[in-house]
Design a protein around this nucleic acid. Structure first.
Lengths: 222, 222
DNA sequence: CCGATACTTCGGCCGTAGCCGAAGCAATTG
DNA sequence: CAATTGCTTCGGCTACGGCCGAAGTATCGG
């Protein structure tokens, strides 16, 4: 157990894992950049993480793509973050990138930040979703609404992961919607071209189309 | 974040935190013994853990009692353990103490091990409890049954924590019952003298009375 | 008060592990 | 078949942090 924690406990490796938190697979070089250390050093870290089965690798040509081995690793990282935030408040320089990421970002594979919390608030307000402390449910009205929007709920339901999970947002400190539903909704928004990923970051850029879309669908001005 | 993980990442500190996992408050000396290092070293570790708000201290005479600051720390530790267990299987010498702890122990403040899982199985089998993936519920029949047993459900309900939470057992790899219900049930069993804590361990000793009680109440031979 | 116990602080030793430069494979490109 | 790119292995440097012995503060008991 200490071993796993120690792996996460190195700043370079923590950066690597955080970079992988959005569920995408990244190359060793990209991770080296994210970690802020040289390629050699990164390579060493990656093989350690792989040894402990925290990450998987898949070769494609001369690239090697790394990803988290599963959602349990993501959840562990989130729970560590949650504890880290309850600690003594640290002065951190607010940067522009920071503001971006507070505004809208992905959290493993669903939306977080003001955007994610705003969507959750709206869905709860109009009885589309009921969120408990550790689980949530989509109402009939909610299913109808999401289907109307083009979200494939049946596919989400078929997957073996938790269907609807509240996920405490580390910037807003309020829950947003995770689980298969959150992922399906996020996917649909990508499809619709409402949001785009910002390069080298978990931050999201909301397109003009998205601005209109979120207003119409969720009465959300972003 | 890396900071918190690094704190857990040291073997001595991991031992300390695990020793506190059952929710009891322990003295610095007891923790030194649990960690397997000297009192001075332990003192250093404790002040670091305190600095990061992972543990709280309360002075009582010449003793200082340390405890986890809250359930979120416990949950973080559990999630790290869960990941550690999915890693490469490690050969660990099975000791007598090991068997004891596999048989019956506390998990933060409720029962785990064969005992905890057995109780959960029985409660589910006779429709007293329904356990989902991330949350659970006590049925009317269950409420009646537990009240009959002397468990104070209304007090449990009044507390602000999650009422009924499935908690994956790290030895049995199946869920047992946590949350306020799990804690209340465990409390009642202590009151009835069915179980006693084993010194310096999270393991539990089941008394002869307990053996009869668990058989009558849960049809469980332990 | 004096000694014992509980715990902390200080100082110095030592090992582990992170880091990079250099060099070595492997796959791709011109 | 070089030259380039992506990634890894090796070797050596360095520093951070855990560890204990010794000494210093609290609290309790006789």
């Amino acid at each position: 157990m200490a071993e796993v924690a120690a792996l996460v406990g190195d700043p370079a490796r923590a950066n690597i894992l955080c970079a992988l938190l959005d569920g995408r697979a990244l190359t060793a070089t990209e991770l080296a950049y994210a970690a802020g250390v040289s390629a050699q050093t990164t390579s060493g870290h990656l093989s350690k993480l792989r040894g402990a089965r925290l990450i998987d690798v898949c070769k494609q040509g001369r690239h090697r793509y790394y990803r988290l081995t599963g959602a349990h690793v993501g959840q562990m990282l989130e729970s560590i973050m949650a504890v880290a935030l309850t600690g003594p408040p640290r002065l951190q320089p607010r940067s522009k990138a920071d503001d971006l990421i507070r505004h809208a970002r992905t959290c493993y594979d669903h939306f977080a930040g003001e955007l994610g919390v705003g969507i959750a608030d709206r869905l709860i307000a109009c009885d589309c979703v009921v969120l408990g402390n550790e689980a949530g449910e989509v109402t009939e009205a909610g299913a109808a609404f999401l289907t109307e929007l083009g979200v494939d709920l049946s596919a989400a339901r078929a997957r073996r992961r938790v269907f609807c999970r509240p996920c405490v947002d580390w910037t807003e400190r309020r829950p947003h919607i995770g689980g298969a539903v959150g992922a399906a909704l996020a996917n649909r928004c990508f499809e619709l071209g409402w949001v785009e990923r910002v390069r080298d970051s978990r931050a999201l850029n909301i397109t003009p189309t998205g601005r209109r879309g979120f207003m119409e669908a969720f009465e959300l001005s972003v």
